[in-house]
């Protein structure tokens, strides 16, 4: 049985719909991981000891255990304590928090690397430490970590395939379903791979756009 790619156009709509889900879950999780990452970073650097502790536990869980297990816990586990999340939401939360922990590490380093004259200048004007962090230090730190965070976001895109196991009809699961119908794994997996690659390229393009835009303001 040879390869026959002519079968693909017939099912392209399913694959493209899968793409949309993949893009949706990636963008939502990326945004969540970005903002929660900033929040985690600020807690890790500036919160009192007692408040830090639960966040350290969260960090440890999300860094030290497989993402797949985390998705199972959030989707299947939480139901048992009465939290019944839609699969998409569970997937976004799982991916988002998982990558938030990694983003937090990057952002912490970047915050510490912002010249301390920046905080001094802001404080001298009369800003509180919180105001100075929010308006002066963190925006600069975030600009500095856009390239490494972009890399994390591409990893996030690839890991979004894992949410297929909790039943989100994203690209990988869509491909699998078509394979179940047509028994043509090679064609469909290759098509899915190509589509991931295209999404990947567009993410890199967006990242470059952002980097160019902020280059002047660094």
């Amino acid at each position: 049985m040879g390869l026959d790619f002519s079968i693909l156009p017939k099912y392209m709509d399913v694959l493209l719909l899968g793409c949309l889900w993949t893009i949706g879950i990636t963008v939502a999780a990326a945004l969540l991981s970005f903002f929660v990452g900033i929040f985690f970073a600020v807690i890790a650097l500036y919160a009192p000891w007692l408040i830090k502790q639960p966040f350290r536990l969260i960090e440890w869980v999300f860094m030290g255990t497989p993402l797949l297990l985390q998705l199972f816990l959030i989707y299947f586990g939480l139901v048992q304590i009465g939290i019944d999340l839609p699969a998409f939401v569970a997937g976004v939360i799982g991916l988002g928090l998982h990558f938030a922990v990694y983003n937090s590490e990057l952002i912490q380093t970047a915050i510490l690397a912002v010249d301390k004259g920046q905080m001094e200048a802001a404080r001298t004007l009369g800003l509180s430490r919180g105001q100075a962090l929010r308006k002066v230090v963190i925006p600069q730190a975030v600009r500095d970590v856009i390239p490494p965070i972009g890399n994390n976001m591409i990893a996030l895109l690839k890991d979004s395939a894992l949410v297929s196991v909790i039943g989100v009809s994203e690209l990988t699961l869509s491909a699998q379903r078509m394979i179940g119908k047509t028994y043509r794994p090679f064609e469909f997996y290759l098509a899915a791979a190509a589509l991931y690659y295209i999404i990947n390229l567009s993410m890199e393009w967006v990242q470059r756009k952002i980097e160019r835009r902020i280059a002047i303001s660094r």
Binding site: Q118, V136, Q140, S217
Partner: peptide
Amino acid sequence: FQHFNLFPHM
């Protein structure tokens, strides 16, 4: 300040 400490992102 000696080194200006302008906010570079503004």
